[in-house]
Write a protein that binds this DNA or RNA. Sequence first.
DNA 1: TTGGACATGTAACGGGTTACATGATTGA
DNA 2: TCAATCATGTAACCCGTTACATGTCCAA
Lengths: 200, 200
Amino acid sequence: MSVKHIILGILSWKPSSGYEIKTEVEYKGRELGWGKVSFGSIYPKLKELELEGLVNCKEVSQTERQTKMYDLTNKGWAELSDWLRSNPTYPVVRDELLMKMSFWNYVPNLSIDCLIAHLNNRKINSEKMLEHLRDWECNDVSSIGNLAAYSFEYLKLQLETEIKWINQTIEKLLLNEQQPHKDPMNLVQESHKRYQKTVE
Amino acid sequence: MSVKHIILGILSWKPSSGYEIKTEVEYKGRELGWGKVSFGSIYPKLKELELEGLVNCKEVSQTERQTKMYDLTNKGWAELSDWLRSNPTYPVVRDELLMKMSFWNYVPNLSIDCLIAHLNNRKINSEKMLEHLRDWECNDVSSIGNLAAYSFEYLKLQLETEIKWINQTIEKLLLNEQQPHKDPMNLVQESHKRYQKTVE
DNA sequence: TTGGACATGTAACGGGTTACATGATTGA
DNA sequence: TCAATCATGTAACCCGTTACATGTCCAA
């Protein structure tokens, strides 16, 4: 899981320039569960891969703009294949919204409206992504392997679940309903006391 | 979203040593959507935070083992509060399983059984996490704020959705059912041709 | 003629992990 | 007495981003 394998994977789709790889990641990355990749990591990595003999490079310059087109070598296909067969690592998410919710109770003087605003914001973004996903499925230029289509389905399900959860959660917060929670050591109260003492 | 805020957040729960912070992240991190944090980043960061005046440190050493207990200062509470109020960034996931599925079709000679094994593996891990989550809710020592409980709910829903999706996907793969996919430019075939040429 | 997409690159920095080093205390 | 847990720290490294520098081609 790294820029290296993203590059090799995209080159398996078709020979591409560094610039094209970037736009490909930009465009499909969100949908397919990749992160982002910057030029600053693509170009040096391509050179490295060339040195390793995993890709080769042809300069195209005739009528067209000068461009370096990369393609997989024998060794590159093998490396990609090996990686695909190796067991994927379990994803570790660092979700800032969830983190904030974990701490929200313990800090006094925080408005619940502010948290609701965060949730709404998240919802708007997720709805945008969902829409983007559906648009993409409707367009008739993009290719998508049938297995990639399954990962599409995954993303859609997760986004739908998330939106549902946000709606429910906001509703509960507005009703000021208390989720059954437990605090055997009275940490929330303790925190507020400590806060008072410190700020006093 | 960083080690800094994780530390401040945990200190809002209760004063802790670097070691305790680590175990706290270890134990609750998975459930609450944080990543992992290593000692190598906790200890230097605590010193830094002390210099910035966000936390203070008391050495405890009497009968007990020598320990540095940290707590939030006035400024630390303020910083935490500011961060909580600021709009969370939208999470970017890099999911290796999804990435591999995006590329699977384009590389010849990959067994579908191998992909099914990856999916099963993921399922096992997710089931373990789900179980862990449920255990945690039942134990009677851990505190959890009512808002943290909502993020718990989120994680549970996402895991359940994921497991359902895995089951469906494996079933489809076993039936060799073709997901409606599109390939207007015949990229899959093209890739296989390119592969043949390169490997020949 | 000018701004925007195309195209490539590098140096500085950032934020973390890994691996290593050290040592006290506790329980089997 | 020996392994496990508690406890702290640092230096080397990794992998990426940001910011900058440079230049072409095309269309409004």
